[in-house]
Design a binder for these strands. Structure first.
Length: 499
RNA sequence: GGCGUCGUACCCAAGUGGUUAAGGGAAGGGUCUGCAAAACCCUCAUUCAGCGGUUCGAAUCCGCUCGACGCCUCCA
């Protein structure tokens, strides 16, 4: 410990760099969270998992981590700056959708999806941040920030709202490379129609709109904050004026993060954040997954709807390093499920060997320490999950090889330590209790009989050598999506995932 | 039009100047099992999209060609 450090590909420089924290061994880390107008999809979670891995690696190398991830619960316009503000916002749109009918109002809707989001977060075993600040709970801070920007001439008031004056911040474009202002003008000309703005690229800090479903009173009248200001304000409130590392999805590079930098640096007069990382999109069957296309999966679609092990889903989502697109397919999920199964197998073999208390040498510890070190090194090197997972699997294989037919208590102890460390680092080798709990939920009933009864019937059929009946029962359960496995410790059943 | 990423076996993917090109899945063979599953053993890229160049030496560096993709506009 102490000799390793975290390296990331910094979006600002496009270089692999060692993260130098302002305070030694203390990482101040902000990760952009979701807008809660619907259930978060697995692509959202790929990004949140990148942040999760940053936290895990930082902790593994002995850093203290101050981790903040926001929840955007204000509906922003679907088109950034429609002049008359008559365009529906995302929340409002969601409220008027079929699924939205169950909610009393937008506040109710936001609360519902925020709660669902946190449930999914926990199910995928993401570490919780220090705080989950919400935009609606930081309105005063946002208004104050806008006022400050106006005072310092970085923003101006118009009849439609308050806008950030891009020309007042020469560094605009340093993150995305969109430095050419004329180019920017061309690019946005088609969309932006507000003639009150000085430059088409100027973005909204406050939108005046007394018909908006969520509105607050400001010095400029009733309205709501611009999308970008919340992150600047909340990040600085909880982490200080300069962060160490800021993360988000690749689509946020421009305009969101670019705008965050502009606002924040104009507010404080110094650098907002020296290191930025962006997670590439998750694709589904080779196509971009997006809410507008409607081809997205939520965590609950897969876990509740198709019986996918949440840990397997987590594995699938982190199996490709964050800097490359990950093409999510049924095969990805199957591979992941298989690998998680092997981690669990190793855990259960080690638990049995540990319980048996056999004396003898530790024959695996040395190798497992090497493998863990390699995994941690890989994670420190720009979160190379592909290599880290390979080490995890190799370790699990070694454990199964060495302990399946019994092994010493010392070997078992070293194995369990390895699995715990790997789980702390990657979250893919859960303790047995978790698996047992997962299986303990509602025992399924097939053709009127609980599983246990079927198993008993089959066991007695086997005892009397009536293998035809035994196989018949296996098939019946198989058709109902239940798989039986004969083990030395008895018969166990598991739910097959439908993929 | 501007900014940027990528192309490694049937599939996912590591490797970014130098011993036999990680690992996983799938597939085939075997041990075990009443059967099955699991587990274990074995097999599975003389080759890294194509073409040129630099080099003693390249999948790795440079150039071009072809192909895929992302952002620039709500999006993780």
């Amino acid at each position: 410990m102490g000799t390793r450090t975290l390296h990331v590909t910094n979006t600002l420089t496009r270089q692999l760099e060692a993260v130098q924290t302002q305070e030694p061994d203390h990482l101040r880390f902000y990760s952009c969270g979701p807008t809660v107008y619907s259930y978060a999809h697995i692509g959202n979670f790929r990004t949140f998992l990148t942040a999760d891995l940053v936290v895990r690696v930082a902790e593994a190398i002995g850093w203290k981590v101050s981790y903040v991830s926001n929840i955007t619960d204000v509906g922003h316009l679907t088109q950034d700056d429609v002049a008359d503000a008559g365009g529906e916002d995302k929340m409002e749109k969601a409220l008027h959708s079929k699924e939205g009918e169950q909610f009393q109002n937008v506040w109710d809707l936001a609360r519902h999806y925020a709660n669902a989001f946190i449930d999914d977060w926990d199910r995928l075993r993401l570490k919780r941040p220090l705080v989950w600040p919400r935009a609606t709970e930081h309105m005063r801070e946002q208004i104050e920030a806008v006022e400050k920007l106006i005072e310092s001439d970085h923003a101006y008031v118009t009849p439609t709202g308050v806008y950030f004056r891009l020309s007042s911040f020469p560094d605009h474009g340093k993150l995305s490379g969109n430095r050419d202002k004329e180019q920017l003008k061309v690019a946005v000309r088609d969309v932006v129609q507000d003639d009150n703005k000085e430059h088409p690229g100027d973005f909204a800090l406050w939108k005046l709109d007394d018909k908006h479903l969520m509105q607050w009173y400001s010095p400029w009248g009733w309205g709501f904050p611009g999308w970008h200001i919340e992150c600047s304000v909340m990040a600085m409130k909880y982490l200080g004026e300069t962060l160490d590392l800021h993360a988000g999805g690749e689509d946020l590079v421009f305009p969101h993060h670019e705008s965050e930098i502009a606002q924040s640096e104009c507010l404080t007069g110094h650098e907002f954040c020296p290191y930025w990382i962006h997670t590439r999109f998750l694709q589904v069957n080779g196509e971009k997954m997006s809410k507008s296309k409607g081809n997205w999966y939520t965590v609950r679609d897969l876990v509740d709807g198709r019986g996918v092990d949440p840990v397997a889903l987590r594995y699938a989502l982190i199996s490709v390093p964050y800097g490359k697109p990950n093409n999510f397919t049924d095969q990805t999920l199957k591979d992941a499920a298989r690998n998680v199964e092997r981690m669990r197998e190793a855990r259960s073999v080690a638990e049995s060997a540990s319980a048996a208390q056999v004396a003898g040498e530790d024959v695996v510890g040395g190798r497992l320490v090497e493998l863990y070190d390699k995994a941690l090194d890989a994670m420190c090197e720009d979160l190379n999950t592909a290599v880290a997972l390979a080490q995890a699997l190799e370790g699990a294989k070694l454990i199964r090889e060495s302990l399946t037919d019994g092994g010493s208590a010392d070997s078992a102890k070293a194995s369990l330590l390895f699995l715990d460390q790997i789980d702390a680092l990657l979250g893919i080798a859960p303790p047995v209790e978790t698996a047992a709990e997962a299986l303990a939920e509602a025992e399924p009933v097939v053709e009127g009989k609980p599983i246990a009864e079927w198993i008993a019937l089959r066991t007695s059929a086997k005892a009397s050598k009536d293998f035809a009946t035994a196989d018949q029962i296996r098939q019946t359960l198989d058709a109902a999506g239940i798989e039986l496995r004969d083990t030395p410790d008895g018969v166990i059943w598991k739910r097959k995932t439908s993929m």
